[in-house]
Design a protein around this nucleic acid. Sequence first.
DNA 1: CTAGGGTTAG
Length: 383
Amino acid sequence: MTIKIPRGHVVNGFESNEYVGNSLVVFVVSWNALFSCYVQSDYLGEAVELFHEMVLSGIRPTEFSLSSMINACTGLVDRGEGRKIHGFLIKLDMYAKIGNLEDDVVFEEITKPDIVSLNALIVGCILHDKHDFALVFWANLHCNLIKLNVGFDPFVHVGLIDMYSKSGLMNDVRMVFNLMPDKDLIAWNAIISANSQNGEDMEAVLLFPLMHEEGVRFNQTTLSTILKSIASLQANYVCKQVRALSAKSGFESDRYVVNSLIDGYGKCALLEDATRIFRECLIVGLVGFTSMITAYSQSGQGEECLKLYLEMLDRGIEPDPYVCSSLLNACANLSTYEQGKQVHVHVLKHGFMYDIFAGNSLINMYAKCGSIDDAERAFSSIP
DNA sequence: CTAGGGTTAG
């Protein structure tokens, strides 16, 4: 993997600033800026490596550094790459001066846990990639914190909600949310998203009016998140209501909201409405096309799927494993072997065979098109 | 710290 952002630029950029006095403070801020860049560019493993490097060079992380690390680690666990950075964990433990993570007694040695030690522990738990252990550990940690009457940083709270959510631990998600003294917009979005991600779609949608009752204003993220659950529930009427709400609140031009609306209408089998938004919005890109292709595929209009795909390529939009997977599914439903083969060529050309969804769709397509040979070949070609 | 599109069966 190539690292695009030259580290020196960021670090020297801050160092050479004559208005900034304390170089040690400057350093950690520069590192933090770098972490943020890396995480946003999806260089998660590199971000963790850099973090380790910083810690070894004697610079104490701040809540900003660790907040980036929570994101990086959550992402890595998502991808199943968490183990790769397991080695760093051991050293991280040393830094955190908590000795053996598996012994929760060591926590008591930290008489006044601050944001740094707390966050280091979060990173440690996530890096361990041992969710069952993390659960026990966090349960103990929570008890200790309550006993010690230590306030949580809101960022830590949302980080925890996100981590628990991605581990499927909804009870813990709710516990953390309920512990929050000030539930702001971000907290509400996090709990709604957690419900949505864990298949509690009805709950996710019902939280929306609750949030309103508590006097917390929604934003585009809220709308996009509940639309995903509305799509799963195929709640046609609610979908239309949210569309009206998006227009009224001015979030209709948000990329995520638009895509979620297209997808929502598609899943609710409201093809005309989906098409209208799709055609009216000039910002529709790869994701919008994928939603439309899926919608047509599900309504049995395979020719439209292929037409849309060609239109997409015509507009210079590069395909990805998602759209290929959706397209292969359309071919499978239609039993269009020749077209399926063409999509297979695209999958190979763009190197999407590593993607488990694209691979499965390919196998499925050949199977549905009646070619077991091709299906088997596709199966054994999965890396 | 929170947000969008994809696979398998029945």
